[in-house]
Amino acid sequence: MAEILSANDLNFESFIQTERMVIVDFWAPTCAPCRLMEPGLEQVASNHEGSVRILKVNVNESPKTSSRYYVRTLPTLLFIKEGEVRTQIVGAVNPQQIEKTLSEVG
């Protein structure tokens, strides 16, 4: 089973403290591009089972986490390793672009 977890303000920190690359997907139910990007994220998750963790953060429910990273656009993907942001993608992208970014920062 590919690892896509739902994180919030309370548990976010514990989820990013891992040796694995973490992709954080900031989304909201009202964001259509976020919804349309979901199958691509699932594809990436299954390609990297065991090596990449994908966290979904609903910005409406977790305002502190989105403020902490100055997220003001949805979707935003943060690539975090060992607790530090390596890069980010702003706006909807396809799985190939996520893969390319992973290979650059991985």
């Binding site: 009202t30 259509a32 003001r72 949805l74």
Partner: peptide, 13 residues
């Protein structure tokens, strides 16, 4: 992505 946006529906909240 930090205040400058091209999608009001996505980012208005």
């Amino acid at each position: 992505g930090r205040g400058v946006s091209v999608c009001a529906t996505c980012d208005a909240p």
